[in-house]
Write a protein that binds this DNA or RNA. Structure first.
Lengths: 88, 88
DNA sequence: TGAGGTTACGCCTATCGTAATAATG
DNA sequence: CATTATTACGATAGGCGTAACCTCA
């Protein structure tokens, strides 16, 4: 699990739309798709239901969404803390 | 910033000893050294003082140590949560 | 039939380990 | 002179984009 995987997952989950999430992340659709696939494979959990040409969060995906946001928030706090230390 | 960078940094910081940390992580010394260097470069912050052939946490490094531990703890919680979902 | 997700594939960069170097206790 | 961190360097794996595809409204 990497922060990058979580960032991609959250962007897609919030939109339930891979193309728009990929665009927002300046990433090709295929890369976003592969990232989600790698997360699903890593934990053996299906994060999205593929319904026709749309995707929808599974209950398991919804759990991850909450947790992933928390990690990303804390990681961002670390980043800001580090950047504030440059001055000192 | 990646979780892997933080893991390596914490292992070194806790021991103030790169060789032993690298061994504990099943990593070559050089890789551990490069990882710290990449973190320091990324934020322009010196994390360790190189005193002779020993290393010692800087005050900035001590700050990161606390924050990094928190992120890693939360990341581990996500991992455990995901693993608990496999059953469901 | 066109919009959107997946798969195939080649490329490229980041990271690794080995080995050489520097420093010091 | 043995130990430890850094630097150099070639090799490899992981992640990216392009493009072809499959499916469905």
């Amino acid at each position: 699990m990497t922060l990058e995987q979580l960032r991609v997952f959250v962007a897609i989950a919030e939109r339930e739309h891979m193309t728009r999430a990929a665009a927002a992340l300046h990433l090709a659709q295929s890369a976003a798709s592969a990232t989600v696939a790698s997360l699903e494979a890593e934990y053996g959990v299906k994060l999205f239901d593929r319904v026709g040409r749309t995707i929808r969060l599974t209950p398991q995906g919804a759990v991850l969404l909450d947790e992933a946001r928390a990690v990303l928030l804390q990681a961002d706090q670390v980043r800001r803390r580090m950047e504030s230390l440059v001055a000192s």
